[in-house]
C-alpha cells in the first residue's frame, strides 16, 4: 500500500510497543490480534529495527495481511489486517 494511503488508515487497534525491545512488540502484536475481528486493522508502534522486519514476516506466516510501514519521528507505524 502506498504511503499516502497508509496515512489515511484509521486502525481499529493501536499497539504502542515503543517502550520495548525485540521480541516485545511482536508479542504485544500477538496478544492484541486475538481481540480483533477478521478484516480489522491493527497498527503497531515500535522503535525497534528488528520489529520492522519481523512483523511483515510474522503476518505472512500467520496469514494476516501486511499493509505497510510508515516511518515516523523515531519510530515506525506498522499496519496489518487480520485474516
Amino acid at each position: 500500500m502506498e504511503t499516502t494511503n497508509l496515512m489515511t488508515i484509521v486502525a481499529e487497534k493501536t499497539v504502542d510497543a515503543r517502550g520495548t525491545a525485540c521480541p516485545g512488540p511482536l508479542l504485544e502484536a500477538k496478544k492484541a490480534i486475538g481481540i480483533l475481528e477478521i478484516g480489522q486493522i491493527m497498527e503497531v508502534l515500535s522503535a525497534d529495527e528488528g520489529t520492522r522486519v519481523d512483523i511483515p514476516k510474522w503476518c505472512t506466516k500467520q496469514g494476516h495481511e501486511y499493509l505497510g510501514t510508515l516511518e515516523e519521528n523515531g519510530y515506525y507505524k506498522i499496519f496489518l489486517r487480520k485474516n
Partner: peptide, 11 residues
C-alpha cells in the same frame, strides 16, 4: 526466553 517468545508468536 527471546526464542521462546518468537516461537509462541508463531503458535
Amino acid at each position: 526466553g527471546v526464542i521462546m517468545s518468537g516461537a509462541v508468536a508463531d503458535d
